[in-house]
Amino acid sequence: MKNKKLLRQRRNAFWSALYAAVIYALFYIPVLVMIQFSFNDAKRNYSWEGFTTQWYGKLFSFGNHDLWESLVYSLAIAVAATVISVVVGVLGGIGLKKFEFRGKKFINLMLYVPIVVPEIVLAVSMLIIFMTVGIRLGMGTIVIGHCTFCIPYAVVTIKGRISGDNETLQEASMDLGANRVQTFWRVTIPSIMPGILSAAFLSFTLSIDDVIMSNMLASARQSTLPVLILSVNRTGITPDINALTTLMVLVMVAGMLVMSGLQRLRRKREAREMAEAEQRISTLRG
C-alpha cells in the first residue's frame, strides 16, 4: 500500500521533470542553434556548411563596420535609457508610494499603458507626435521611446521593494537628525538598492533587445543592432552576427556569475566576521 504510493509519487516526479526539460529545450534549442551557426563555414546562414572559427576573427578585425557601429549605437542608447529610466523610475516609485496628490490615480493608470498596450501602438503614436511637432528622429527619440516603456517597469520594481517599513526608516533617520536630502541618500536609496539594480538590469535588457521602437523612431542613417538584424534577415544573416550575439550572451552570463560569486564571497565574509564576534562576546561575558 505504502509502496504503491511511493511508486506513484516517483513516477509523477519523473514525468513532471521530463515535461519541464522539454519546455526548457524549447527555450534553449534556438540559443544553441544560434551559437552553432556562428561557427558556420558559409557566407550567409541558410544551411550548415562546416565548422570554422573565422567569423570571430573577422569580427575582431572590424571588417563588418556596420555591425560594430550598430552595436555601439545600441549600447549608447541602452545606457542612456537605463540611466534616465532608473532616475525617473526610482524617484517616481518612491514618490508615488509616499505622497498623495491629485491625479495620482491617473498617473498610476498611465504607467500600465506602456506595459499592456502593444508596443507598435505606442511607437507609432510617438512617431506621429514627433513628426507633427517637428522633432528630428534619431538617438534622442529612440531613447525617449525606450524610457517610456522602461520607466513603468522601474517604477513597479521599486514600488515592490518599498515595504511598509521604509516609511518608518525614513522617520527614524529624520528623528536622528538627518534632513530630507541626507535621509534620501543615506537611508532611502541604500535600503532599496537591490530594487534599483534589478530595475537597471531590466531597463538595459529591454532597451538593448528592442526592435519596434528602435525601428519606428530611428533616423534613416543609423540603426541599432536588432534593427540591423531585422533588415539583414531579408538577404540572409551573416555568421559574424551570430558570433557577435553569442559573445553578448556570454558577457551577460559571465557578468551574472561574477555578481553572484561576489555576493557569495560577501556572505561568507559576513559569516566569518559574525563567528569572530561571537567568540569575542563569549570571552567578554565569560
Partner: peptide
C-alpha cells in the same frame, strides 16, 4: 518595529 537600518 525597531526601524533599524537594514543595510547598516
Amino acid at each position: 518595529n525597531y526601524s533599524l537600518f537594514p543595510h547598516m
